[in-house]
């Protein structure tokens, strides 16, 4: 299972890439995309939507399931990866390249895990 070292993770299987101290890109981990299977659609939020750490922000659809994406931080959606709207398969192809949303004005976050800690979590769940 691919777990890039430079990223942070949360236990709900999202990854975080801090662009600035108060701005982050998030996506889902390799583990999450594999568990979900072929992703067919992504219900992205709108730029300007509020995000609350620990609360569902939007969802991804596979053929037979829906997965909530839990916001790992509190802030405001500043960008969405529009390319995914037409090409949700990019998430399956490279979950770390296919960022989902960018959240700015961050004022709080869930407990963040390092790559090593996240790997330990995955090992536990196996």
């Amino acid at each position: 299972m691919n777990v890039p070292r430079e990223l942070k993770y949360v236990k709900t299987h999202e990854w975080l890439n801090y662009l600035q101290a108060d701005k982050v890109r998030i996506g889902i981990s390799d583990y999450a995309q594999e568990a979900l299977g072929d992703i067919v659609f992504i219900n992205l939020p709108a730029v300007g939507d509020p995000a609350t750490a620990g609360e569902p922000l939007f969802d991804l659809e596979s053929v037979k399931a829906v997965e909530d994406i839990i916001s790992p931080v509190t802030g405001e959606v500043t960008a969405i990866n529009e390319k995914l709207l037409d090409h949700p398969e990019l998430i399956n192809a490279d979950p770390y390249e296919a960022w989902l949303v960018e959240i700015g004005e961050i004022s709080g976050s869930e407990e963040l895990l390092s790559a090593a800690e996240y790997e330990a979590l995955l090992a536990e769940e196996e």
Partner: peptide, 13 residues
């Protein structure tokens, strides 16, 4: 198709 809209998958949502 587009079944992820429906109650048997999305339930209360």
């Amino acid at each position: 198709t587009l079944q992820a809209r429906e109650q048997h998958i999305r339930r209360e949502k």
